[in-house]
């Protein structure tokens, strides 16, 4: 069984039959049961719709953003500090107003969304790769290797992820210098989020692997002299992916918040190619003088994004958990 202190119901979500490759998870998602529960849950439907729209905007900002805000030739200072369209002095030209340099806030949000989502997805992907690999090895090997790896996980778990990410950022500054670090900001943040978030995956995958490795299909693979790496990744991995999917969804929300937080305190993405957090940081300078929309609008976009992800994560966790049915 998995770690009794952290039971992970999602691992037992479906009956384990013979391994079927990585396409299995997609088939599981398409299967009637999850679509049926999605249809019954209008909150989850709404969250999914909102998330799809935001992801579309993040993928193709040029299509949706009214202005190329970070093209220096397009900046017109005379448009600075316009309030949103529905307030006195606002115009339909700039729906959500403009910032201190006359840039359209809506466009800035759409481009910022792209940076936030890129860093979030990249961080989650790195955490998945590290966590799944360590979890598979620990669960399959057992014994000394298992206790060593889990001990490392325990140590890391005593620190909040955000602190570890800040620490990694500080180390990157000491190594690369401030300018070098800013050029590599996206990569540094992906590494910081990945290294601070792998433990949850490792624990869940380890627990599931310990169950799986005693099953007949693993024994039969061992007997036919399939290599260990192949057994781990081709045979066991597809059966623990449901757990990874649930953790990954919730982690994506956390990852985007970590990026936004680091950027807000000035340790994340620099203002030359801002993320949502950077936009809020810049706008925060004008809160006291009354130009509230420069910070509040990107903040609201961030809130909607993370809320949609969390709602969907809650839905997936419940829908893939047979105990709640």
């Amino acid at each position: 069984m998995s770690d009794p202190n952290h039971p992970d119901p999602a691992t037992n979500a479906e009956p384990k039959t013979a391994p079927g490759g990585a396409g299995r998870i997609l088939r599981a998602l398409r299967s009637a049961s999850i679509v049926r529960s999605l249809r019954k849950d209008w909150v989850a439907m709404l969250a999914l719709a909102v998330l799809l729209i935001l992801m579309f905007a993040a993928a193709l900002p040029n299509l949706l953003a009214p202005y190329r805000v970070f093209d220096l030739t397009q900046i017109q200072l005379m448009n600075a500090f316009r309030p949103p369209a529905w307030l006195d002095g606002g115009s339909a030209e700039f729906l959500l107003g403009t910032d201190d340099q006359g840039r359209d806030i809506l466009s800035a949000i759409i481009y910022g969304l792209r940076v936030s989502v890129t860093v979030g997805l990249g961080g989650v992907a790195l955490a998945v790769v590290i966590g799944v690999t360590i979890g598979l090895i620990a669960g399959y090997a057992g014994g000394f290797i298992d206790s060593l790896l889990m001990r490392v996980a325990d140590v890391q778990l005593t620190f909040p992820a955000i602190l570890i990410a800040v620490m990694i950022d500080g180390v990157s500054r000491a190594i690369l210098g401030n300018a070098g670090r800013d050029n590599a900001a996206v990569i540094v943040l992906i590494i910081a989020i990945g290294l601070s978030g792998w433990v949850e995956y490792a624990r869940a995958v380890r627990g599931a692997t310990m169950v799986e490795r005693h099953r007949d299909y693993v024994a039969s693979a061992q007997l036919s002299r399939v290599g260990t790496a192949s057994i781990l990744f081709n045979h066991i991995l597809p059966n623990v992916l449901t757990a990874v999917l649930v953790i990954g969804t919730i982690h994506l929300g956390v990852a985007i918040l970590i990026e936004a937080t680091l950027s807000f305190v000035g340790l994340g993405i620099p203002p030359t190619q801002p993320s949502l957090g950077t936009l809020i940081r810049v706008g925060n300078n004008y809160i006291l003088s009354g130009e509230w929309w420069i910070a509040i609008m990107p903040g609201f976009a961030l809130l909607v994004l993370v809320l949609a992800i969390n709602l969907l994560g809650d839905f997936l966790r419940d829908a893939l958990n047979p105990r709640l049915k």
Binding site: G253, L257, A260, T261, F264, V265, G277, I280, N284, I287, L288, W292, A295, I296, G299, L302, L303, V306, L307, N310, L311, D314
Partner: peptide, 18 residues
């Protein structure tokens, strides 16, 4: 409560100040 865990701490601070 779901909004509470989705909203970043720093943004709560910004809104409270505003």
């Amino acid at each position: 409560s779901l909004i509470g865990i989705s909203v970043p701490t720093f943004f709560v601070g910004v809104v409270l100040i505003w």
